[in-house]
């Protein structure tokens, strides 16, 4: 189509035009998010199967979680989704400085989330709620009569750590990519025509946010009223 020399900067050699490039990267991102859904889906399946088998033990485990910190973190993540959306908006307008600003804000909010997560994990470890040889959960006599065993509660924490850990890993990777993008934004790599990376990262960040929106009620809220 176009001669090599007249090709716009930022358009990869194998695409005909920016539109094709943009559509390809969006579709790619969506397909990637589908794989992510399937990935978390396996864990959610395990959670549903085991929760239905050990409802009371899971509720007891759930009670050990700090609902205040969980709710705070939910708010923080939703805030970070907002700043991420603003970064995408800035990219569409071609406003470089604002892209960088909103990306930095997103990173900060993500960092706050992870910091709170560390505090929560630390508290669980101190209370011997980390699955493994050190795990200890005092099951009251009443609960024992109700069929709750320490192992069932441990299963809750297995899944708690697996699910929130995997989620946190996604956050860490996301923050890493955002850091690179801040540098790119300051260097002026994004233009009104070419800002696929920002948009794709926006999709990713919202996805990670949505996973948490499911994790929070499943792990923190369900069955607290026992």
């Amino acid at each position: 189509m176009q001669a090599e020399s007249s090709r716009a900067w930022g358009l990869a050699h194998h695409f005909d035009n920016f539109e094709q490039q943009r559509e390809a990267s969006y579709l790619g991102m969506w397909v990637f998010l589908v794989t992510e859904i399937m990935f978390f889906g396996g864990l959610f399946t395990a959670y549903v199967v085991y929760r239905s088998a050990n409802a009371r033990a899971f509720a007891l485990g759930s009670k050990e979680l700090d609902i205040t910190l969980g709710a705070f973190n939910t708010a923080v993540l939703i805030g970070s989704s907002l700043t991420m959306a603003l970064a995408v908006w800035a990219a569409q307008q071609g406003k470089r400085k604002q892209i960088a600003l909103f990306l930095v804000l997103t990173i900060l909010l993500g960092g706050v989330f992870l910091g709170v997560k560390v505090v929560e994990y630390r508290a669980k470890i101190d209370h011997h709620l980390l699955p493994g040889p050190d795990f200890h959960f005092p099951v009251t006599e009443v609960d024992e009569i109700l069929g709750v065993q320490e192992g069932n509660v441990e299963m809750f924490f297995n899944l708690y750590f697996a699910m929130t850990g995997l989620h946190a890993l996604h956050m860490i990777i996301g923050i890493g990519v955002l850091l690179v993008m801040v540098v790119l934004a300051l260097r002026g790599s994004f233009s009104r025509k070419n800002h696929n990376l920002v948009e794709c990262m926006g999709l990713y960040w919202h996805f990670v946010d949505i996973v948490w929106i499911f994790l929070f009620p499943l792990l923190y809220l369900l069955g607290r009223n026992i």
Binding site: T35, E36, M38, F39, G41
Partner: peptide
């Protein structure tokens, strides 16, 4: 795309 993540 749909199956591999589950076995993973």
């Amino acid at each position: 795309v749909l199956g591999t993540p589950v076995v993973a």
